[in-house]
């Protein structure tokens, strides 16, 4: 601990890049002490080179930015609009937000997203669970109680951005997953035993596999994040090392992802006949909310599901064309 230097000494030290201004932060990645202005420049140019080197976009593409109102997505919205302007990417950018329909929950973050809309001049599209699934989370909770609502929220959320992106007819969806997130995903897939996902979770475009499933029980997420933060404290480059490990793992190319088909009902990717969201919706719409929760596979096991087709239509489930 270099506690000896107090405030004065810091003020005399200068940014290690421009050598002019007072440093404001220490970059975990390089341990360089740099000023705010240089940080912006370096940070934005790094993102730019990632975009260019990985050929993430083509001119004229419609791109949705997943916007939650959180820190990462706010930064992403800023950087994307800034780089699009500065480097003439020629992209049509949108902000895409999902409203779960939980009273008093999204209000704050939707405010933030609306502010982003004005600040960066990006059109905002808010899709609600009501639009996508025909149910708000409040209605779901009313129906099934507090006990299992995580299952619903998690499954619905996983698809919401993709479905929203499809509604907007965009070519690509960008999300603010950062190095911490990817490192976390690498660890998570080791902990869960998911070798197939482990083999591609470090890839920058997750492509047809759909978004990385991320809704984990809160406590678990929390411990994992704390572990990552603890690691970062003793060794800042651990985060990047985890990603390097993820890239270097010797995984036979023959390791297959579970058979990936599409949901017969909504067209979303699904390994079963119906995707999980549709199974859950089916339960909700039939007044059997426990369907699809727990071990039984619900409707995917039954062959007589078509008899219930009429019931399905009793509530709209956000028909989407993919």
């Amino acid at each position: 601990m270099d506690g000896a230097h107090g405030g004065e000494k810091t003020k005399s030290r200068l940014c290690s890049i421009c050598n002019q201004r007072r440093p404001a932060l220490k970059r975990p990645k390089t341990l360089q002490q740099i000023c705010r202005e240089c940080f912006y420049v370096v940070f934005e140019e790094e993102i730019h080179s990632v975009i260019v080197n990985n050929k993430l976009f083509k001119p004229g593409e419609r791109i949705a930015i997943g916007a939650s109102g959180g820190k990462d997505s706010t930064v992403l919205a800023y950087v994307m609009s800034e780089l699009n302007r500065r480097h003439n990417y020629g992209l049509d950018l949108f902000l895409l937000s999902v409203d779960e329909g939980i009273t008093g929950y999204r209000d704050d973050s939707l405010e933030t997203v609306k502010r982003n809309e004005i600040q960066y001049g990006l059109p905002l599209k808010v899709v609600s669970y009501k639009d996508l699934y025909g149910w708000t989370m409040d209605e779901i909770v009313k129906m099934i109680g507090l006990k299992n609502n995580c299952t619903f929220c998690g499954v619905f959320r996983r698809q919401a951005l993709d479905r929203g992106a499809a509604l907007l007819k965009v070519d690509k969806l960008v999300t603010g997953h950062n190095a911490d997130d990817i490192a976390e995903t690498v660890l998570l897939n080791i902990l869960r035993g998911d070798i197939a996902r482990l083999s591609r979770c470090t890839s920058i475009i997750t492509g047809e596999d759909g978004p990385i499933p991320r809704c984990k029980p809160f406590k678990y997420t929390y411990e994992k994040e704390i572990f990552i933060k603890d690691l970062e404290r003793i060794r800042p480059r651990a985060i990047l090392d985890i990603i390097k490990s993820g890239e270097d793992f010797r995984i036979a190319t023959s390791t297959k992802m579970p058979e990936q088909g599409t949901c017969q009902r909504c067209g979303y990717i699904s390994s079963q006949k119906w995707c999980k969201a549709c199974v859950l919706l089916e339960g909700l719409n039939r007044g059997l909310p426990k369907l699809g929760i727990g071990r039984t596979r619900g409707v995917n096991r039954k062959d007589d599901q078509h008899n219930d087709a009429k019931n399905i239509q009793s509530k709209p489930c956000g028909s989407l064309d993919f």
Partner: peptide
């Protein structure tokens, strides 16, 4: 506006 890692953390 300056990361406390630069000013000595707890001893700032």
């Amino acid at each position: 506006d300056c990361d406390w890692e630069l000013s000595g953390q707890l001893d700032t």
